[in-house]
Structures are given as C-alpha cells and as structure tokens.
C-alpha cells in the first residue's frame, strides 16, 4: 500500500472508531458530573470533579444487585438450554440420516421470519397459564431454543471429519456415544460462540422480561434501567451512572471473549 493511502486509511479508521466510542465516553463523563453541571452551555466535556457518589446514589435507588442476579440467572439458564438443544438438533441435521431432514431443517429456519411480537402474547398466556410469570423459569422457558444456534452447530458439525466418526462406529459406538465423545469435543469453539451470543441476547432482551416480570425483585438489568430511566428522567448523571453499570459487565465479558464472537460469525458458513 502506498503511503498516502495508508495515511488516509488510518484517518478514516480513527474517525470511525471515534464515532463508535464517543457515546461511551460521554456516558462515563456525564456519569461523573454534578446534577446541574450537565446543563451548562457549552456542556463540559469532562466533569470538574468526578462525582463517584452518583454511582452509589444510582445503585441504591433501586435494587440493582437483584437485577444483576436475575439477569445472570436468566442468561445462564438460556445458555444451558440453547447449548443442549442446539448441539443435539444441530448434530442430527448435520450427521444423522432420517426422513424429512431437509423439510424439518427448512421449517426450523423459516421460524426465523416470525416476528417476536406475534408469538409474544400467546407465549405470555402460556407461561401465565402455567403460573410461571414473575419467575426465573418462566422468564427463561421461552428462550431455550435458538434456531440460529441450531444452524451454527449444524455448520460446525459438518466440518468434523467423517473418518473419525466412522472409526468410532466400527468400534461399536452408538450415535449418542459418537456425539458425546467424538463430535462434541471438536466443536468446542462453536459452543463457546453460541454460549456467548446466547448470554448476550438474553442479557439484552427487553421486551420479554418487561412483560413477564411484574415485581421489582424479578426485573432484569435491562428492564431495571429502563424503569430507572423513566423515574429519573431529568437526572442525567444518575441515569448515565446506571447505564455505565449496566454496560460494564458486558464490556468486560467482551474484552475477554471477542475472539470467540468474531470467530463464530466467521464460522456460521454464510459463505453459502
């Protein structure tokens, strides 16, 4: 690459990265300001003195610890459910021979088109009829299968060399045995990707927890900060402190696992 084009590329990169990061920076800056400091014109870019007290104030205004526990329990249940269902169904679609394989797979994929809002009401009525509203189980029950996860696992199982499985079969192993001790260990990276996405999706889910949870004690972080937002809607430092607290764990998770996330997307085989 020539020197000017490299410089141009760098400038564009920096601009793009800045555009992505400015809202985060502003979130942190505002979270440290005094309540009225934010209303200066022009707004100060950094607080004169960082008010750590905003965090204590925001965090004690609502039971945020409880929200974190709820979101964590919810997300972990979803991760476990999706890992099991995606791995088994994905393996069946990738490797096992049965009637209607193609049709069933297409049926699964076509459910991706169903807008969440269509099935939202019946799902709520269903969970309500089982008297599971406002419980962790009710919250997680609807999210235990991800068609995208089935697809991802199918793609990765297809890359497992058939010879390995054939060898095991000759040794007398049944399909579950082959699945458990041969195929599954080889798709660990895909499982990691799926687990991460499942976790993030559950953590970010707003609409379903908003509807299924009623009590303050059962809210997830997303619902919690959304209600915090409407309660304290003029106190921006408080709101931003809550936002930082909500974003931080996800960012930490991301920092350590970014490799899996992007690798997994490379793996979904959107090459066709």
């Amino acid at each position: 690459m020539t020197r000017p084009s490299r410089a141009l590329r760098l400038v564009m990169l920096v601009a793009a990265v800045a555009a992505m990061l400015v809202p985060f920076a502003w979130m942190i800056a505002t979270s440290g300001m005094e309540e009225l400091e934010v209303f200066q014109d022009p707004p100060p870019l950094w607080p004169a003195e960082f008010q750590g007290g905003n965090y204590a104030g925001a965090l004690t205004a609502q039971p945020f610890a409880r929200y974190f526990v709820n979101a964590g329990v919810f997300a972990l249940m979803v991760v476990a459910g999706q890992l099991i269902t995606s791995a088994t169904a994905g393996y069946a679609f990738a490797r096992l021979d049965f009637r209607g394989r193609r049709g069933l797979f297409l049926l699964c994929l076509s459910t991706l088109m169903v807008p969440a809002v269509v099935i939202l009401i019946p799902r709520f009525l269903f969970v309500d009829a089982l008297e599971l509203t406002d419980t962790h189980v009710g919250l997680a029950s609807t999210e235990l299968v991800s068609v995208w996860g089935i697809f991802l696992m199918r793609q990765s199982f297809r890359q497992v060399p058939r010879e390995l499985e054939d060898a095991a079969r000759i040794d007398g192993a049944g399909p579950w045995r082959i699945f458990w001790s041969i195929a599954l260990p080889l798709v660990r990276p895909a499982m990691a990707t799926l687990a991460l996405f499942a976790f993030l999706d559950a953590w970010k889910n707003l609409l379903w927890p908003l509807i299924v949870t009623r009590s303050l004690e059962m809210r997830t972080v997303e619902v919690g900060i959304a209600s915090f937002h409407s309660t304290y809607h003029t106190n921006w430092p408080y709101q931003m402190a809550a936002a930082v607290v909500a974003v931080a764990p996800v960012l930490l998770l991301f920092a350590f696992t970014q490799r899996f996330l992007t690798q997994g997307l490379h793996m979904t085989g959107i090459k066709g």
């Binding site: 793009a16 992505m20 909500a246 960012l251 992007t262």
Partner: peptide, 13 residues
Amino acid sequence: AAFFLPSITSLVA
C-alpha cells in the same frame, strides 16, 4: 473490536 461494541452492549443503556 470498537465497531463491535455498540451491537453487544445493552440496548437500553
């Protein structure tokens, strides 16, 4: 990594 950040963080925040 920077590009990816917005899509993984809390939508409400």
